[in-house]
């Protein structure tokens, strides 16, 4: 399955969002949007990733 993760193409076979995040982002707390729509943390386990989805995975950073 081809998806876009933070603007870059990525191939994955993991459809379950929670598992996908755990495989790549176990080191940090993240917030997620799929195709421009926010996905609440409580929905991670009930959300599936589909072919062509665009994922934004954000973490805390410095800001003004």
């Amino acid at each position: 399955m081809n998806i876009t993760l933070n603007g870059a193409p990525l191939q994955t076979e993991i459809q379950d969002l929670a598992r996908f995040l755990n495989s790549l982002f176990s080191e940090t707390r993240v917030a997620v949007a799929i195709n421009g729509s926010f996905v609440p943390r409580a929905q991670f386990e009930h959300t599936q990733i589909h072919e062509g989805d665009e994922l934004e995975v954000l973490s805390p950073m410095q800001g003004g």
Binding site: G7, T28, S59, P60
Partner: peptide, 16 residues
């Protein structure tokens, strides 16, 4: 504070 794209397998955001 702000948010940024998190690179996989890194803990930068978490450290901050």
């Amino acid at each position: 504070v702000s948010l940024r794209r998190q690179a996989p397998q890194q803990a930068g955001g978490q450290k901050f």
